[in-house]
Design a protein around this nucleic acid. Structure first.
Length: 230
DNA sequence: GCGACAG
DNA sequence: ATCTTGTCGC
């Protein structure tokens, strides 16, 4: 497990953070299909917080995309770098997530984030931000529709409905289990929406949330508990 | 102006 | 995100 320190030039105010998003958003690549599902590595990242102790723990878990078993994992802990502000989640999560990714012994392949990419007030959510900073293909799989609207997808797993910001499709509501609340998929960086949904389905053979997310969630919670204790 | 709002 | 046990159901 590695320890991180927030960069000296990290934004302090919401205005500064929004300015960073506006500067980096031009670097998002949307015209690549991304890696094909079921091949190579797929990596889940997630973060857990202890606001009382000013602690944050991140985990990165690399899965074999075909077998969905764990190939490698890494964690990082640090101090909280930004408060939670809707639309600015990346500034709270990214320093620690980057450290966890850096600590991996192998290439991550596609990175699956807990949250949004393109589906964002300025079209630059966590997954897009992480993609631009690392150059890696990324997607976002969120548990809630945020500020966006959507029709109910049909009952069977695999059904989708556009996730809309007004009339613009910024992602997709994707049902990963028959009759269960959908997840909300959006493109991060260097990956197409169809492919992002295909990956999400490949990662959900048994549960609503991707195996990547489930593994990373369990690991970062464990890391946070250990950091708070020792 | 007020409320809602990824994690 | 986080506070939190059991419980109903496939």
């Amino acid at each position: 497990m590695t320890t991180v320190h927030t960069p000296a030039d990290w934004p302090v105010t919401e205005e500064e953070a929004r300015a960073v998003q506006d500067a980096l958003r031009t670097r998002v690549v949307l015209d690549e299909p991304g890696p094909p599902p079921g091949t190579g590595h797929v990596t889940g990242v997630d973060v857990a917080y202890d606001d009382e102790r000013d602690l944050v723990a991140a985990a990165a878990v690399v899965l074999d995309a075909a077998r969905l078993d764990v190939v490698a994992e890494a964690t990082a802990v640090g101090r909280i770098s930004f408060p939670y502000v809707p639309g600015l989640l990346a500034f709270r999560e990214i320093p620690t997530v980057l450290a966890a990714l850096d600590a991996l012994p192998c290439a991550p392949g596609l990175v699956v984030c807990d949250g949004y990419g393109l589906a964002h007030p300025r079209r630059f959510g966590l997954a897009s931000h992480l993609g631009v900073l690392t150059g890696l293909p990324t997607i976002g799989v969120a548990k809630n529709p945020f500020t966006f609207t959507h029709d109910e997808p049909d009952t069977p797993r695999g059904s989708t409905a556009p996730l809309l910001a007004g009339r613009e499709e910024v992602g997709r509501a994707l049902r990963t289990r028959d009759g269960v609340k959908p997840v909300f998929v959006s493109v991060g960086h260097r990956t197409g929406l169809d492919n992002a949904c295909a990956h999400t389905l490949a990662l959900t053979p048994a549960y609503r949330l991707p195996e990547t997310t489930r593994r990373a969630d369990a690991l970062c919670r464990r890391a946070l508990t250990e950091a708070a204790a020792g």
